[in-house]
Nucleic acid binder design. Sequence first.
DNA 1: TGAATAGTGTCTGTTAGACATTATGCA
DNA 2: TGCATAATGTCTAACAGACACTATTCA
Lengths: 253, 253
Amino acid sequence: MPRIPSAEEADFLRRYSIHDFDVPLTTVDLVIFTLRQERLQVLLVRRSDHPYKGEWALPGGFIDVRQDVDLEATARRKLQEKTGVVTPYLEQLQAFGGPQRDPRGWSVTLAYYALLSADSLQHTNTEGADDSDWLDLEGEGVPYELAFDHAQILRCAVQRLRSKVAYSSLLVHLVPVEFTLSELQRVHEQVLNRSIDKSAFRKRIRDGDFLEEVPGKMRHGSNRPAQLYRLRPELGTHYYPRLLGGREPNPVA
Amino acid sequence: MPRIPSAEEADFLRRYSIHDFDVPLTTVDLVIFTLRQERLQVLLVRRSDHPYKGEWALPGGFIDVRQDVDLEATARRKLQEKTGVVTPYLEQLQAFGGPQRDPRGWSVTLAYYALLSADSLQHTNTEGADDSDWLDLEGEGVPYELAFDHAQILRCAVQRLRSKVAYSSLLVHLVPVEFTLSELQRVHEQVLNRSIDKSAFRKRIRDGDFLEEVPGKMRHGSNRPAQLYRLRPELGTHYYPRLLGGREPNPVA
DNA sequence: TGAATAGTGTCTGTTAGACATTATGCA
DNA sequence: TGCATAATGTCTAACAGACACTATTCA
């Protein structure tokens, strides 16, 4: 429903130019998580241009005012350029802004975070590329200096991920489309860095009611086969009324 | 710790001008809540300039790249201009961006929401001013058209407030510095729009352990006097491990 | 048969909420 | 004394987690 401006407002708009003002620089940055070899990893790139040329940074870039229909579109576009993945879990993290964070001047970045399953990356070329790489998370960050305030953004994203995992079904997005409950539980234990009681975990999943069995499909190994599950279609993230292990954090495994 | 750019980067920065690029317009908007006459209210202003001149909008404005040290500083500055309040509860809500939301072009707004107690407003002049007013919330919004996408932002803020109230101590900021537990409970019931069991509410507050009695001070009426409480100093927002009324929503009072 | 993991069952302590009861001021 | 609200107590159903047990495959 396009709104019709008044003649007076139309005149105002005709004369308006954003270049008459001191405006902040605006970018979108991405914290892209995946889980490989049982480790939580984040995608970083080596900057190809000034400022911070050659240093590790979060992938990101400028809004394309000609093609992006909203902020999330910018984020999705950047994410697809870097990973090839088109339908990840993507959520706005937070905006960061200030005069110092970018040497070009007062800047704002809209930070997003994304969750990708390792198998969605199988056929993309981020593997060992010269200009980008998956790095293991250690604690709330990565043992390198990052450009701009990206270390702070990354820390913020890790905290958000950890806290949201404790009351939602988020982590199904770090796992292939079909998975066993034990696999999903291990992912939770990885990310939260503590062991979870199997019985409690499975009851919680059952109550959440956002998974369905893949009929007749099992994961086989040298043990009892495990039922494969998948996300129930057309369902958003499930939110639990209480935190996982809200009371007494189990001793770390 | 100011970083020293290389000579090459310094040269790049010297030539850099943001005016060489198509950049989005960036603003900060505020959803300012208070509670008066037992009603949740939001501060709206009549726009004094194009676009949307004369229509209701959320208070907000441009980042002042000369004085604002970060995004929150912009928000606090705007909030103080409108309400005179300097230390409210203030939290970033979400960023909204797109080519259509402002007729001047692709724009981004950093939305914040604030909670003010009615008594912190007592001596400010927002009361019945011609260009701004407190409006009762109805449902998730206000029964007026708002400029830009401000109706959507307001709805988002109300949802965030309601959901956060259910697992945190947020609402102490809508109440005077000294208050009774019954008053605090009524505020919760107002905002959540359902009745809460007194015993459960008080146990929850006690467990949270973020309030202290004001020694010897009571609220008197034609009934048993009530102990006054205040926020324990130096404490941030308390987060509960479970939702208030997570299971079965009580019948609405 | 043993190793390994899947999957289920039982028990217990904790807790939120329903509801009832007592407490204390004022008119 | 009665009214209004404060404040606390009791009971119960639900539930998370601890732990143990059974199930099922492969080697």
